[in-house]
Amino acid sequence: MYRFLLSRRWLITLLIALLMIPATIRLGFWQLHRHEARVARNELIAHALTDHPVPFDTLSAAPGAAVTKDLNWRAVTATGQYDPEHEFVVRKRTSSEEKVGYFVVTPLRLSDGKGTVLVNRGWVASGESATTYPAVPAAPAGEVTLAGRLRPDEVASGSIRDRAGLPDRQFNLISSDQQTRESGVPLLGGYLELTATTPAPADQPEMLPEPNHSDIGPHMAYAIQWWLFTAMIPVGFWVMVRREAKDRAKEAAGAEVEPEAVPA
């Protein structure tokens, strides 16, 4: 009854089904690992943001020092005076309302003399031309105390590319190494993403919102879908086999029926 399974068509179908089972299992675990990584990232951000703020230069204590993964988003403080002469903007950045503009980055000379820190003061809208420097609220004069989030230097990846030939004081990356080479001012590694200034200025760029650390994404649902699909493969194959067997049985039964005698 099931000898048709030895045919070329059914052997190929069986082989495809057998190959799909481990593939879909692996895809399910891939989505599970992405879910676990997302949860771990959210927990890391939540702890970093709620930890007691520490001075920036205690975490990034040397020019070019890398901000490690466990320090990303760490709440930090810094006290010093802005250096507007070496201020620059970062192109093609979006606001909280997804409008395209610039990030405004201004170095801050620390009052304790331990170095200079890049500060992302926030977002401003694009001007009439992408070749001219945008309208930027002036950095506060005198000594200020800042609160913010520690961020690693940006590197070219995805849609962010480090291109030459940009207008004056416009860049595609926030990089302490790059700005050290451009300005000649040694900068501590990483940068501070501003959340508060004391004393508060009358006008300032739009500060960046806190990163989302509650959304776990759809990866767990995708993992379950892949594993359900894994279970459906043998079930679907068996249904196809049974249907083929029934169709062949009907054909065989019809062929065995003798034709009625034709009356003379």
Rank of each mutant, 00 (worst) to 15 (best):
R3E: 07
F4T: 08
L5F: 05
R8N: 06
W10R: 11
W10T: 13
T13S: 13
L14D: 10
L15W: 11
A23C: 08
L27F: 02
W30I: 02
L44R: 15
H52R: 02
P53E: 13
F56H: 13
F56V: 07
F56Y: 15
P63C: 05
G64C: 05
G64D: 03
A65R: 14
V67W: 09
T68C: 06
D70I: 09
D70A: 14
L71F: 04
N72Y: 09
A75F: 03
V76G: 04
V76N: 03
V89C: 11
K92C: 14
E98C: 00
V100H: 04
V100L: 13
V104Y: 07
V105E: 00
T106F: 00
T116D: 01
L118H: 10
V119G: 07
G122R: 03
G122P: 00
V124Y: 12
A130G: 12
A135W: 01
P137T: 01
A138Y: 06
A138S: 12
G142I: 00
A147T: 15
G148W: 09
L150F: 02
L150M: 01
L150Q: 02
D153L: 00
V155N: 08
S157G: 03
G158F: 05
S159Y: 11
I160A: 11
P167W: 12
I174R: 02
S175D: 13
S176K: 08
S183H: 10
S183A: 04
L187V: 02
G190D: 05
L192V: 09
P199F: 08
P201Y: 14
D203N: 09
Q204V: 01
Q204F: 07
P211K: 15
N212Q: 10
N212T: 06
G217V: 14
M220Y: 15
A223F: 12
Q225E: 07
L228T: 09
T230D: 04
P234H: 11
W238H: 12
V241C: 06
R243A: 10
E244H: 11
E244K: 11
A245W: 08
D247Y: 14
D247F: 11
R248V: 04
K250A: 07
A252S: 15
A252L: 07
G254A: 15
G254Q: 15
G254T: 10
